[in-house]
Structure formats: structure tokens, C-alpha cells
């Protein structure tokens, strides 16, 4: 049960000033209304004002909160979605940022990524593969093809220098990976992201949500260690940041885990000894289940529940204001 747009929930903080305004207005209006209605009904008027103000404000805040929850797109539980597909298309999305040269995973993170890709290709002989590299921008090195020879030859050339744009934006990588699935085919699709998870630009969750909507699971493979290491450039120097400090690059597993969970896939750290077997096993089980049963399990969006709460609260809040109370107002 995780929202697709968790950042939206920060809007809930905005309800505190709204509540503050409502209270300040109440204090001011209680005095003003006495002037209008006169002293002889003062007690009754004040009572009605308190009741109406309290319930309409509370319900209005509840409606706003529920509306915000609806926008955050919570999902829990799964439901089968019919899917009549056969065969498998896999798009590899490989991080080629400088941090992938770190050697906390030997010989280097990028070399390990290559090994994983070669291994996956061998395990799924009848499939088609595409290869996307990303840094600040993404590049489709190999389009979706059954030609594993072509993929293998380009794998050797993977290096941070093949993309000039600096930075790391997993989102553009995922988007390019999604675009690599050609239209008009009835094959199963999967994206495999190989990265250390250091995302310096943008947010990858929008692209991941699009993938989830299209039923494309994104398996994320975390390459690196939590302790991290320095990054040695091909020139032999250590990678330094803007203030000339040596950069220590660490595995950011939370981000990768979130991306995978959003799409109903799994995050697999490559440091584990059984990592490779797990990767193959996870893809195979997703793929096998979908083939044998002809459907896939999709997370069920629950925005409707929150929207109903929001609408009902809003209408009751309005009703509290619209009903005449004790024949006063």
C-alpha cells in the first residue's frame, strides 16, 4: 500500500494554515455577528455559530484531506487483468553515469551490469532485447531485436563517455526503455534497470507510473554497496564534486525499491550471492504466471474511496451551512 505520488501528501501540511484561518475568522466573526443580531439573542446566536462553524470547518478540512489522498493515488490489493500475450520483450536500461565506474563491486559496477545483462540474455533464448543507456539523457543503443549478437557487441562499448549530458536521470532512462517496445506486438514486456540508484535529476516515479499503467514491470537491480567507494576516472584521477571534495558513491536502494514496487516487480541487490538466480527466477515467475493463466495481477487503485469521502464531507459541510438552525441563521 504505497501512493504513486507520495510528494502530493505534503499538501496535507497546507491544511494547518487553512485551519488557522478558519479559527481566526471564527473569533472575528463571533464579535461581528453580535453587532448585527443584537444583545437579546446573543447566547443563541453564539451557540449556533459555534456548532455551524465547527462542523462545517471540520468537514471541509476532511474533504480537502480526502481529495489530497485521492490525488496521491493509493493502491492496495491486486486484481487480475486479462492479458493475452506470448513471448518476452526485455528492455535493459543501464546507468552509465560516472559513479558506475566505482569499484565497490568488482571489477566495477558497469562491468557487473554487463555480466548481468549477458546472463539474462542467455537464460531467455527466444526473447527480444533492447538496450538503453542513460546518464543526463537516454540513448537507445539497440532497438528491440532478437539479434543477441548485436546486443553483445554493443555491451562491450558501454562507458560513461557514450553520453555527453552530465547527471543521472533514471526517469528518462525508464521512459526511453518504455518507448523501445514496438507497437503492434503481443509479447510480454519487462524493463530491467541496472543502476546504483543515485538519481541526481528529476523524479523517476512519473515514468514508473506510466510503466505500471501499461502493465510493464520494472525490475530494478541495485549495483553497488551501501558503504560505497570513490570513483576512479579513466584518467586515473578520483571523481570530485563542485567543491573539489572526493565523491563517495553509495547504493541508493530505497529509490530502486520504490520504482520496482510501483510496477509490481521486485528490487534485487546484486551484492547478494544468490542475486543472479533471483533475477532470473523473478522474471521467470512473472512471465510463467502470465503465460499459463492469461492474465496478470494489477494493483487496484483506491482513489474512488477517498473521492467518495471527500464528496460526502463536502456536501455535508455545505448542508450544515444551508440548514437554518433554531430559526436563527
Amino acid at each position: 500500500m504505497s501512493p504513486a505520488y507520495p510528494a502530493v501528501l505534503w499538501l496535507l501540511l497546507a491544511l494547518i494554515p487553512v485551519a488557522g484561518v478558519l479559527f481566526a475568522q471564527f473569533v472575528r466573526h463571533r464579535e461581528e455577528i453580535e453587532l448585527v443580531t443584537g444583545m437579546w439573542r446573543k447566547i443563541d446566536v453564539a451557540n449556533v455559530l459555534v456548532v455551524k462553524w465547527f462542523f462545517s470547518s471540520l468537514l471541509f478540512l476532511l474533504a480537502l484531506a480526502a481529495g489530497i489522498f485521492a490525488i496521491a493515488e493509493f493502491a492496495w490489493g491486486t486484481a487480475p487483468v486479462e492479458e493475452d500475450r506470448s513471448g518476452l520483450d526485455v528492455a535493459f536500461v543501464v546507468d552509465v553515469s560516472w559513479s558506475m565506474l566505482a569499484d565497490d563491486i568488482r571489477p566495477s559496477r558497469l562491468d557487473r551490469a554487463r555480466d548481468v545483462i549477458r546472463g539474462v540474455i542467455q537464460e531467455f533464448p527466444e526473447s527480444r532485447f533492447a538496450l538503453v543507456a542513460f546518464k543526463g539523457t537516454a540513448l537507445r543503443l539497440i532497438p528491440m531485436t532478437p539479434d543477441t549478437l548485436a546486443v553483445d557487441s554493443v555491451l562491450g562499448a558501454l562507458a560513461p563517455t557514450i553520453i555527453a549530458a552530465p547527471g543521472t536521470d533514471i526517469g528518462v532512462g525508464i521512459a526511453e526503455g518504455l518507448a523501445a517496445f514496438p507497437a503492434g506486438t503481443d509479447r510480454h514486456r519487462a524493463i530491467i534497470v541496472l543502476s546504483d540508484g543515485e538519481n541526481l535529476h528529476g523524479t523517476p516515479f512519473g515514468a514508473a507510473t506510466t510503466a505500471a499503467e501499461r502493465g510493464v514491470p520494472i525490475f530494478t537491480i541495485g549495483i553497488g554497496t551501501l558503504d560505497g567507494s570513490t570513483v576512479r576516472l579513466p584518467s586515473g584521477e578520483l571523481l570530485r564534486d563542485a567543491s573539489d571534495d572526493v565523491v563517495i558513491s553509495r547504493l541508493e536502494r530505497d529509490l530502486l525499491r520504490r520504482i520496482a514496487e510501483l510496477t509490481g516487480a521486485t528490487y534485487i541487490p546484486v551484492g547478494d550471492t544468490d542475486a543472479f538466480a533471483r533475477i532470473i527466477g523473478e522474471i521467470r515467475s512473472m512471465y510463467g504466471r502470465r503465460v499459463s493463466e492469461g492474465f496478470r495481477l494489477a494493483p487496484v487503485g483506491r482513489y474512488r474511496l477517498f473521492l467518495v469521502i471527500a464528496l460526502v464531507s463536502l456536501m455535508v459541510a455545505m448542508g450544515v451551512r444551508a440548514v437554518r438552525w433554531r430559526n436563527i441563521f
Partner: peptide, 24 residues
């Protein structure tokens, strides 16, 4: 639609309650 709806409903609240000073 939910986002636009929320904005409109909140805008009405701002106008009615804060700009025009409706009591209840």
C-alpha cells in the same frame, strides 16, 4: 479531474471565506 476539482473548490473557499468574509 480530481486536481482541477480540488483547485476550484479551494478557490471558492478562498473567495467566500477570506476575500468576502462570509461568517459561516
Amino acid at each position: 479531474l480530481i486536481i482541477v476539482g480540488l483547485c476550484l473548490i479551494f478557490a471558492e473557499f478562498v473567495v467566500r471565506k477570506i476575500a468576502l468574509g462570509e461568517i459561516v
